[in-house]
């Protein structure tokens, strides 16, 4: 489960947003799962899987603190200590259904790999990706190759002005897969789509379910984001 991956590339693709590709040993990686990545800091950083091509995993991460800032300085050829894949991802067996993918900011990455896997099963998808501003937009072309893609920006500098909930209101789909900031997840969890799955983020300790740092309230108690999730049915958690 713990391995030393080799970094193949690490580059900035949007404002404070990095794309890192690493070569990883044998692993079956489900979309929506994550790796717990060692940085110069004490605790690992959970990074969602943005893509998998053969033994190459892509991480897209935002530089927000000292750990991710240090990660951004790594170069091709460097080793990366990773633990994973961890957690439970999005359920792909949605044949015959239409899936809407709703991502916000750095919640967009896991939806790319998820969309590729859905496309491989012949499942029709539409994506709504929300960013704060034009400079923050990433992976638009990659998403467009896989189907209809709607971009929103809060300041209106690119795509539709406003939040993802605007376009979502006019979408006809059976299933919703979403990842992004909590206010957005709250909104999409309450949307008109029948079957709703959301991926939750929280500060983690161990990443494997032992420390109880990343719990989230649930109708019948609590769930651990790292090991019970990070993907949950909207009804399973109380945001």
């Amino acid at each position: 489960m713990r391995q030393r991956a080799t970094i193949l590339s690490n580059r900035e693709i949007a404002k404070a947003t990095m794309e890192m590709k690493v070569r990883i040993g044998d692993a079956t990686i489900a979309p929506g799962t994550f790796f717990h990545v060692k940085t110069s800091e004490l605790l690992r950083r959970p990074l969602s899987v943005a893509n998998v091509e053969a033994d190459v995993v892509t991480f897209l991460y935002k530089v927000v603190g000292t750990g991710t800032a240090e990660l951004a300085t790594r170069r091709a050829g460097d080793e990366l200590d990773v633990l994973g894949p961890l957690g439970n991802g999005f359920p792909l067996a949605k044949d015959g259904k239409r899936v809407v993918l709703v991502g916000g900011g750095i919640g967009v990455p896991p939806l790319y790999y998820t969309r590729r896997m859905l496309a491989a099963r012949g499942i029709e998808t539409v994506a709504i990706l929300g960013f704060d501003s034009e400079a923050s937009v990433f992976y638009e072309d990659e998403f467009r190759e896989l189907g209809e893609t709607i971009i929103t920006t809060v300041d209106g500098t690119y795509g539709e002005m406003g939040f993802v909930t605007g376009p979502l209101a006019r979408i006809d789909a059976d299933v919703l897969f979403s990842c992004g900031p909590e206010p957005m997840l709250k909104a999409v969890a309450a949307s008109h789509i029948n079957e709703r799955y959301i991926s939750i983020e929280n500060r983690m300790g161990c990443g494997i379910g032992a420390c109880f740092a990343c719990v989230c309230k649930a109708p019948d108690g609590y769930v651990k984001v790292c090991s019970d999730g990070p993907v949950f049915r909207a009804e399973e958690v109380t945001l």
């Binding site: 800091e41 004490l42 605790l43 929280n202 500060r203 109880f212 740092a213 990343c214 719990v215 309230k217």
Partner: peptide, 15 residues
């Protein structure tokens, strides 16, 4: 149930 989250915060060489 324990406390509300966040429940962890990193510090220099500690948490």
């Amino acid at each position: 149930f324990g406390n509300e989250t966040p429940r962890v915060a990193e510090t220099a060489q500690g948490m």
